[in-house]
Amino acid sequence: MDRAVFIIFIILIAIPAISPLGLPISISSNTVEVYRQIEDLKSGDIAMWITDFSVGTWGQVGPAEVAVYRHLFDLIRRKGIKVIIVTTYSVDGSLNAERILREYVDTKGLKYGEDYVNLGWIPGYETTLMGIAKDFQSIVKTDAYGTPIDKLPMLRNVRSISDIALIGFSTSTSPDPYPRQLGGYGKPLIINTLIATVPWTLPYYEKRLITGYIGAESDAAGYEKLTGMPGEGLRTLDAQTLSHIYGVGLIIIGNIWYFTRRRGGGKG
């Protein structure tokens, strides 16, 4: 019984991977909101992105993260913003960040240290977040490659959260520490997370401690459409559609199965 369920599922998601179906999609309002906030950055603004999701959740958080990175790096070229990348939760996050920088983002022609900087993993999680908000220079000593930060021109004037124009973070665990430490400063605070974590962030979102959220591939695909840079998100959406309808079907089939078995005198 379960095997059949699994096999049909594998076939369903394999079809779009072999040849895309091109089913229509829509862009959610929260994705547009996040896009606007990032797009509204002005020349010279510093955006900080905290990549904290674990390697195992790449499938869900990764596509949107790639889309946002691409957008940020595009803005460096178009508007001359500056980008700080950092990890606070576990070493996984910095591995993800390096992977995106290496494989997905076009950094050609950009100056490391002036246009963008990767600080790597600064252990400490919530303590680090608090340090970033209050005393940036004392918590950050070197970047990911061991260069002291006074050698990185763009970080020289970053003292606290007031010198940063926008903060975003991605997490696959609890979103609580981020609004706790970084919220309430009147800066945009954007979260990219698992879809299951989105309801958790909604109370913060209502209070505007978090100003925008994106989660999972549908938002990633919408984001890719907005930035005009197609990627993993759009590709997976067909598979999403098929598997959701399959889920609805299974609930119905499961119930029919259950009731016929019960009528037939089987155990409930």
Partner: peptide
């Protein structure tokens, strides 16, 4: 993902 379907099939009872 696979087991979510198992849950739908086995657990979803009216």
């Amino acid at each position: 993902g696979f087991y979510t379907y198992t849950v739908f099939l086995r657990g979803a009872r009216l």
